[in-house]
Simulated assay, not measured.
Amino acid sequence: MSDTTIDRRALMRAGVLAVAGGLAGCSGGGDGTDGDGGSGDGSEGETTSEIALQNTAFQPVRASVAPGTTVTWTNEDSFGHDVTATQFHDGAAEWSFAMSVPAGESVTHTFESAGAYEYFCTIHGEASMCGVVLVGDASLDASLPCEDGTADGGGGISY
């Protein structure tokens, strides 16, 4: 049975990515994927508006969306988390967001302007549970605290 659950999740995520990629392609911004054009160093986000809170981590850690996109964080763990705005890097966008996400629940936020929007879970800490939504042409070349255990505090963000 667990193999079926995994197969269904993989199929569902592939469908979400295909739809998100198609929508990004319709918006005229790039090719709608982070395929072979990516640097491979994790500086570009996965094109998706769905972020899972799973195994005490945000998945994906980096998400890329077009301006005007509503991002949904869904808690797939059996315990609570939160999504709290922060600025790990000098060039990160300032935003105000702090929402609790009980087990099995979701929260959303619509990103209207281009920028790198960083966040973390205050319950589990930035070293293990953080993320960034890259909106529009924003990119983040620096590491997040949960990617390497430190935030460099530098810019690392470009548009």
Rank of each mutant, 00 (worst) to 15 (best):
S128A: 14
G104A: 10
G154W: 02
E147M: 00
A18M: 07
E112N: 08
V132K: 01
A98L: 10
I123Q: 11
G154I: 04
L11K: 12
D34E: 14
V107L: 13
G68H: 09
C121F: 11
A85S: 15
F88W: 06
D137F: 01
G35P: 07
G45I: 05
R62E: 06
F97I: 08
A20M: 06
P145C: 13
G155L: 05
T56M: 13
L53K: 04
W73S: 01
D41E: 08
G37W: 01
E94C: 07
Q54V: 09
T86E: 08
T47D: 02
P60K: 07
S2Q: 14
T122Y: 03
A63T: 02
Q59K: 11
D3M: 02
S49I: 05
V107N: 07
V71N: 05
A138R: 05
M12T: 11
G15P: 00
I51M: 00
G22L: 13
D90P: 02
Y119M: 14
V16N: 08
H81N: 10
C26F: 12
T86V: 13
H89V: 00
A98I: 04
A10E: 14
L134W: 00
A151D: 00
V61C: 04
S64P: 06
A98S: 15
E147F: 05
M1R: 09
S27H: 04
G154R: 09
F97H: 10
A98V: 11
A10G: 08
S78K: 04
F120W: 14
G80P: 08
A57V: 10
G40D: 00
D141A: 14
G22V: 07
G37P: 03
S158N: 11
T48M: 04
T48N: 03
A138E: 06
H124V: 06
V16L: 15
L53N: 03
R9E: 14
G80D: 15
E50T: 10
P102G: 03
G91I: 12
T69H: 01
H81G: 03
T56G: 03
D82Q: 08
T110I: 11
L140S: 08
A92G: 02
D82G: 01
D41P: 06
G153T: 10
M129C: 15
T48S: 08
A52K: 05
E126D: 10
G68T: 09
L144N: 10
Q87K: 13
G40N: 00
E147Q: 10
A127M: 10
R9L: 15
T84I: 10
F88L: 11
T48F: 04
D141H: 09
D31N: 14
E147Y: 03
T74Y: 00
Q54Y: 12
E118K: 01
L134R: 02
H81K: 01
A127E: 15
T5V: 10
T5E: 11
N75F: 11
A14N: 05
G21M: 01
F111R: 02
G80S: 15
G154D: 09
A52N: 12
G45P: 09
A114G: 15
L17Q: 00
I157Q: 03
V16Y: 02
H81D: 08
D152G: 07
D36M: 09
S143N: 13
G37V: 01
P67K: 07
A98R: 07
V101P: 00
E76S: 13
T69G: 01
S39P: 01
S64W: 05
C146K: 07
L134A: 01
A138T: 06
S39W: 06
E50F: 14
T33V: 12
P145Q: 11
G42Y: 07
I6G: 09
T33K: 08
